[in-house]
Design a protein around this nucleic acid. Structure first.
Lengths: 163, 163
DNA sequence: TATTGTTATACTCTATAACTATA
DNA sequence: TATAGTTATAGAGTATAACAATA
């Protein structure tokens, strides 16, 4: 801190402010670049909020979709979460082991499973999503409620495709 | 389409529209959930635009930062890209092997490397960022220019912290 | 002692292939 | 023949630990 030989720029390093980080240049105007960086900010806040519940972001999302879609099949869940069927298995296993969901064979098509949240699963989902919402409000506290609603609308439209 | 045995809901599956996907419930209002899904849409478009240039998203970003910050050090680059020093090495190796950047020892601190883009690197950066911008414009064609600028502003503010 | 670049390694996330049981 | 769930495995992406050179 109080060093007599203050750190100086003796090399070729003109105009780059060490406090505010390097120049970002054209990438600062790329949507993808900023979506990722914003996502990392919000995600770390959400992960911290979920950790006390023993949930990861993906398992919380899966649980929430199961709550809102009783008897959904694992393959449908995988498609909704945009991941492979094979990777959803371990997530479902974990949720079932913790008695947050039940996994029963479909009567009409015995290849499929029907997933359903237990009462405990529903309660955990409600608490977890509320906690994540609070953590997101903190992470986006520089936006007004109107701006946040507008952001969600813009993001929904990007996901919707060229409509 | 014109099937006499129309697909019906014979199991317990009330009200879920198979065309539009399952109900998303509360997670649809979570910023993080929508940031990630939007990012996946835009990222795949960007990756496709970069593939002909032999660049991945991360290496294009690294190259761009090196172009705009001559003599930046690998550790500074890692911090700017929010990744570990150890993981930046292979990216720099690749860019140097392809003669897009040079890596020379700093004279003032011989522990550090000074990274600088070559003419070829600068040209590739310019072409690659332009191509990515075009791919992003296609992926976000449902937004007006004003909405896209607003989106960038909102995302910048989220990254800026609680200011 | 601390820091930079580096290597090795582990851990997570995601993707592919193959199997089974059912259709 | 095709599909749902599953397992095993491979490939990315990311994180930690330790080391040599330098400060």
């Amino acid at each position: 801190m109080s060093n007599s030989t203050e750190r100086q720029v003796t090399d070729a390093d003109p105009g780059r402010d060490q406090e505010r980080g390097p120049e970002q240049g054209p990438v600062r105007d790329l949507v993808g670049y900023n979506l990722k960086r914003s996502y990392l900010v919000v995600r770390s806040a959400a992960a911290a909020a979920l950790e006390p519940h023993g949930l990861r972001v993906v398992s919380m999302t899966a649980l929430s979709l199961i709550v809102d879609n009783p008897d959904i099949a694992p393959s449908e869940l995988a498609e909704a979460l945009q991941m492979e069927r094979s990777n959803i298995v371990v997530i479902i296993d974990d949720l079932e082991t913790r008695q947050l969901i039940t996994r029963t064979r479909s009567k009409s098509d015995r290849r499929r499973f029907a997933l359903m949240a237990t009462v405990r699963g529903r309660r955990l989902r409600d608490k977890a999503t509320a906690d994540v919402a609070v953590s997101e409000d903190r992470a986006t506290s520089m936006l007004t409620a109107e701006e946040k609603a507008l952001l969600l609308d813009l993001l929904h439209r990007i996901q919707g495709g060229t409509s």
